[in-house]
């Protein structure tokens, strides 16, 4: 069993600040982390490794510094790590990203056949949840999204049974390997890195692939060139025509402010009063 886990390095959003005057993002000095959702995918792969025996390869496409994310994954117990990095990938949207990742997975598969590909549910920066389905289609793998649980894996029959979160319930699906699974958060917790794995991670020679090593046949399908979507404008949300009416009264005591607010609101929006009376009756 060979599992490839796709991980993405993202800026740690908890530490992002918006410039108070210019209203722009201050990204400088913001530390990067492994996309939190991808850790659930990695842990699930490591769990299968413990239970069935498997080789776990982590893969990322990104700038050279994304190597740090891969080392982190090795420290948790991944066996192998591949960084796909090349200037031509800059500006990739999800269609171009799935092309590059699919090519790299095929390349990885030449050494040891890949049975399962895991991704996170979505990232915390692009936040599209589109890369998983894209990679699956390109590799013609069975696609299982929002998987909350892998019920069973039969390596002889090449069969897998999973629980998939769907609207209003859980679908139990049976399918064949190879398949691509996007793992839902919250159903496992990342293990601690062992001392031995931390040492291994520090010395581990991450494979660094440029476009040729990654098996990219058509460079025009990558980067900005290969991306159908273009960001045409960045703008601030339209301010409401009027700002909030700040409630004030003579005393400015909480009680009087509250009473004043209700009087104003119910006069202007009588339907809200009706709605409230309807429900608390």
């Amino acid at each position: 069993m060979h599992i490839v886990v796709c991980i993405k390095q993202v800026p740690d959003s908890a530490q992002i600040r918006v410039h108070p005057v210019t209203n722009t993002i201050m990204r400088q000095g913001v530390p990067t982390i492994v996309n939190p959702y991808d850790l659930f995918a990695l842990e699930e792969a490591l769990r299968l490794k413990d239970e069935y025996g498997a080789r776990v390869t982590v893969l990322t496409m990104g700038p050279p510094m994304a190597e740090a994310a891969l080392r982190k994954a090795i420290s948790y117990g991944a066996d192998d790590a591949v960084l796909v990095t090349d200037r031509i990938f800059a500006g990739s949207d999800t269609l171009a990203t799935s092309y590059a990742l699919a090519a790299a997975i095929q390349q990885i598969s030449k050494d040891i056949t890949v049975d399962l590909v895991f991704t996170g549910k979505q990232t915390i920066d692009g936040d599209t949840a589109q890369v998983g389905p894209g990679v699956a289609k390109r590799l013609e793998m069975q696609l299982l999204t929002y998987v909350s649980k892998i019920r069973s894996l039969d390596t002889d029959k090449q069969e897998i049974v999973v629980e998939r979160r769907s609207e209003g319930g859980v679908q139990v699906l049976k399918t064949k390997i190879p398949s691509l699974i996007t793992v839902l958060e919250g159903n496992n917790e990342m293990r601690f890195a062992t001392m031995a794995n931390m040492f291994r991670a520090a010395r581990y020679p991450v494979k660094i692939w440029n476009k040729d090593a990654a098996g990219i046949e058509d460079p025009t399908k990558t980067g900005l060139k290969g991306s159908p979507t273009v960001v045409s404008k960045v703008f601030a949300p339209t301010p409401r025509a009027t700002k909030a009416e700040i409630i004030q009264c003579e005393s400015n005591e909480p009680k009087d402010l509250s009473v004043t607010l209700l009087a104003k609101m119910f006069t202007k929006f009588p339907n809200i009063e009706k709605e409230l009376l309807k429900r608390s009756a």
Binding site: L95, S98, G126, V131, P133, G134, K137, L143, R164
Partner: peptide, 22 residues
């Protein structure tokens, strides 16, 4: 939705077109 995102990502990749999320 879980269904729409699953389907949209697959269809857009199959058609090789752009998809803007959310």
């Amino acid at each position: 939705t879980t269904l729409g995102r699953d389907l949209a990502g697959s269809v857009a990749t199959t058609l090789k077109t752009g998809l803007t999320a959310d």
